[in-house]
Structure formats: C-alpha cells, structure tokens
Write a protein that binds this DNA or RNA. Structure first.
Ligand SMILES: NC(=O)c1ccc[n+]([C@@H]2O[C@H](COP(=O)([O-])OP(=O)(O)OC[C@H]3O[C@@H](n4cnc5c(N)ncnc54)[C@H](O)[C@@H]3O)[C@@H](O)[C@H]2O)c1
Ligand SMILES: NC(=O)c1ccc[n+]([C@@H]2O[C@H](COP(=O)([O-])OP(=O)(O)OC[C@H]3O[C@@H](n4cnc5c(N)ncnc54)[C@H](O)[C@@H]3O)[C@@H](O)[C@H]2O)c1
Lengths: 210, 210
DNA sequence: CTACATTTGTGAAGTTTTTCACAAACAGCG
DNA sequence: CGCTGTTTGTGAAAAACTTCACAAATGTAG
C-alpha cells in the first residue's frame, strides 16, 4: 500500500493540508473535486495521491475534513512535534526562527548555534545562541532530530557531518552545496538562486517561443 | 529543438552551472560523466538535458567549460541582468536583499516596497523603502521585470495583480498561497513549510518501512 | 425497499521523463 | 593517414507519473 511515493505527491499532500486548514466547518466533508480546485490539480490526482496511504473517503460523500486533516498530518509526520536545531544565526536563520508557521506545524526550535563570538550568548526569544563547540553535546542532550543549516557553504559539509554524528534524523539545507551524508539521513535542499533561475528561464523561454 | 522543457531539467541546468562556477581552469573541458558526478545524476541525463538546447559538446572530448557555462547562462536567461522589485521589507525581505549571490547572478534589486509607515523612507544600501502607493508608478518608471513577494499571504494576491498590471514579467512568491495571475506571467512559489514537511515525511516514511 | 444521484478507489491507458545502448565524431598517435 | 580510445547525441526501451473511465459504495428521496 505504501511503497515508493513520488516527491510530487508529497508536495501535493502539503497543499491539501494547507487547503484544509483554511477550511472551517469541522463537521463537513470535501470531495476530491473541491480539493483539486484549491490546489491546481485534478480530482483523479487527489484520489490517487491519497490512495497510496489507504482509503479514507466515503463514496458518494467525499472525505471527512477532520479526519482527512488528521490523516494528512500523520502521513507527513507532523502529528507530533519535531525538535529542531538551527545552525547559523544570520539573516536567513533569523527569518526562519521568527517564522510562526513553523511552530504552528510542530517544528520546535530548541537550540541555536553560531560560530560568531559576537553572537554567542545573544538571547533569541527563549533561546540563547550557543557556540558550535558544544554542538554534538547539546544536540544529544536536547534530543534534536532535525537540523536547519543556515550557514555559509564552506561550513555546511562539516556541520552536516557533525549533526549526523550526533544522531540527527534529517537536514534542511540552505547552503548552495550538495551535502554528502549517509542515505539514511534525508536532506532537503532549499536553493533560492535556483528558484529565480527557474523564473528567468520561464520568461526567456516564453520570449524565445514568441 | 526547444519545446516543452521539464521543470526537473531546468533545476538540473542550474546545478550544472553552479558546478561549473566552482571549476577553475577556464581553458579546460568537462565530460558529461564528470558533470553528472557533481550533481547527483547520470551522464545520460546530462547529455539529454543539454541536447534539448542544441549540441555543444565535442565527441571524444566533452564540453568546453567556458562555452558551456556561457551557454547555460543564456539558456537560463541570466546572460543579462534582471531588474527586480522587492515587495515586503520584513525578515525574509531583508535576508534576500542582503544576499550577494543574487546580485552575482544578475538579479538587481532596484526598488523596495513596504506598507509599514515606520519602514517607509528607511535606507537599505543604496535603496530607500517606498510606499506601496507608488508601486505601479515606480515599477513602470524603473522598468522592473521581476517581483519578489515577501509579504503576508493576505496582501500577496493584491500586490501580484498590481505587479502584473504594471507589466512585471515574473513573480517569485514566498507567501503560502496560490496566486491567481494570467498564465503569461510565470510564478515561482517558495514554500519553506512544505520543504520541512517533505523532510519529516521522508523520515517518517523510512521509519514506517523499517 | 428501490431507484437515483454522487463520489470514491483503482486497474488500464496515456503521457512524460529517465535510462539504455550504440553509431557518429573527434583527438592523438604511430 | 589509418587505427585507437573516448565521449557525444539520440532513437528506442524502460520506468515513472498522470489521466481516464467505470464498478462499487453510500446517502437520499420517494
Ligand atoms: N540570505 C539569503 O537570502 C539566502 C538565500 C539563499 C541561501 N542562503 C544561504 O544560506 C546560508 C546563510 O545565509 P545568510 O544570508 O543567513 O548568511 P549570514 O552570513 O547572514 O549568516 C551566516 C551565519 O552563520 C554563522 N556561521 C558560520 N559558520 C558557522 C558554523 N560552523 N557554525 C555555526 N554558525 C556558523 C556566521 O557566524 C553567520 O552568523 C548561506 O549558505 C547562504 O548561501 C541565503
Ligand atoms: N520568515 C520566514 O522564515 C518565512 C518563511 C517562509 C515564508 N515566509 C512568508 O514570507 C512572507 C513574509 O514573511 P516575513 O517573515 O518576512 O514577514 P514580516 O512580517 O517580517 O514582513 C512582512 C513585511 O511585509 C510588509 N507588508 C505588508 N503588506 C504589504 C504590502 N501590501 N505591500 C508591501 N509591504 C507589505 C509588512 O509591513 C512587513 O514589513 C509571508 O508570507 C510569510 O508567510 C516567511
């Protein structure tokens, strides 16, 4: 039933969940058609995506909003909270730390690290910026499962290795390099330059074909 | 020769370009094999990707690094500079504005807008934060082609429409909503919550199958 | 209880993307 | 020059993903 799930399916599941969250009327139901209309996809795609994980709709009716929401959370692994370590208290790090949507989804920043002596000791909300010297130690102690790397590319590989060594289960990487870590530790890369390039490509392509 | 290019191909082209940039020896050549090793893909994939846009390798030798780099820039539409308007001088907006890699790739921030009266008039580098009141006017005057939306979801649709109205050619959108704009204006969404969810999904999935 | 109007879940068909495999092109060398 | 060892470019095969289409459920109305 649940084997190799396409990455595109996972992205759509996130969309579905977001759609459902902006959807009051807890008792109601929603059809694959309606759900498809909110994301830009098709009803068949919605049903196929969900069918990878079981069948939790009622024929003739659709999906119970409450239940589907809960089921999606479970599938995406956010029916619990995640202990997150933020590495790099720079500009991106700050933006992420302050972003309420993460907390709301169960991503809980429990430690912040930065190599800059001027930043170590700074108070960020309830957290204090710590030195990378105590990285592994703190990750272990606080049981950190996810790490966000918001540090320069030159430091990313080393910190990734140290994070893996300390038992971290996954890495969200903002540095523009490909991390080399054991395959059991998933890495999700965020590369904003690439997004901009996709955009200028799309524009240029349209102009070329015009 | 150049028709409908897969989005995945575009992403890989960005990777190839980045690999080549961290590659001195301007006179040298590189084979599809070597290029594949740097991104995590295959030699055949590299060749197929490039073949969409013509054939600019030499059999038996590989690709001339200089030429390939230039060709990739041209394909991605960054063999020129782009005039970018930043909408939202908040935390994400600041991080992006300060990010040198954008400038380096030819993305030139020529105007900043924010609705917060406290921010209007603030100096950011050579720019001054402007009021949304003069949005269309300034976009037109400065010939802004790309807009980065780093504003709350509640304001994003309106500003997107106004940007399109003012002749903008593409939108990079950080707000977690799906913008409704004419199809001639490409929109690239960045959704960090989704990236985290992909990560926790991957971890949970691995655990389930364990 | 039966006919009816929906809407799911899912094989099968269709489409897109990746991988394979090999002829054609090229440099180097004897 | 012709032979050799590479490496490209590309049809064809394979795999992955999406769309189609319809039987099976399910609530509703009569
Ligand atoms: N700012 C952006 O818009 C942006 C966009 C895309 C990607 N990125 C990438 O994100 C990363 C961070 O960017 P930024 O703009 O926040 O940079 P930044 O310079 O503002 O912050 C980086 C921080 O990391 C700290 N640091 C360096 N080495 C460290 C280590 N070993 N351990 C802990 N902390 C360490 C530095 O002291 C600094 O405070 C970079 O890789 C950058 O390429 C940034
Ligand atoms: N901070 C993050 O890490 C993060 C991550 C992912 C997505 N986002 C998204 O990016 C967007 C911005 O996030 P942020 O954290 O920078 O928020 P922020 O509140 O720090 O900044 C938003 C800024 O936009 C301004 N603004 C509001 N309406 C405007 C308008 N009509 N025109 C111009 N400016 C306007 C506000 O005055 C504010 O300065 C939000 O949609 C958020 O969901 C943020």
């Amino acid at each position: 039933m649940t084997r190799k799930i396409p990455q595109s399916t996972v992205r759509r599941l996130s969309h579905y969940l977001r759609s459902l969250e902006g959807f009051e009327g807890s008792g109601g139901t929603i059809s694959s058609e309606e759900l498809a209309a909110r994301g830009q996809t098709t009803a068949a795609q919605v049903r196929k995506d969900l069918s990878h994980f079981g069948s939790f709709g009622k024929r003739g009716l659709g999906y119970q909003v409450d239940e589907l929401r809960a089921r999606l959370r479970q599938i995406l692994g956010i029916d619990r909270s995640w202990r997150v370590g933020l590495v790099g208290a720079g500009r991106i790090g700050l933006a992420l730390f302050d972003y309420p949507a993460f907390q709301a989804r169960g991503y809980d920043c429990v430690a912040i690290f930065d190599a800059d002596p001027a930043k170590i000791g700074e108070a960020w909300g309830e957290q204090t910026v710590r030195s990378p010297d105590v990285f592994e130690e703190v990750l272990r102690e606080l049981d950190v499962e996810l790490v966000i790397l918001a540090i320069p590319a030159s430091a990313a590989q080393e910190m990734a290795e140290r994070a893996v060594e300390a038992g971290v289960k996954g890495i969200l990487n903002f540095a523009p390099i490909r991390l080399n870590v054991p395959p059991k530790v998933p890495v999700q890369d965020v590369n904003l330059v690439m997004e901009l390039e996709a955009l200028s490509f799309a524009i240029s392509q349209a102009e070329r074909n015009a």
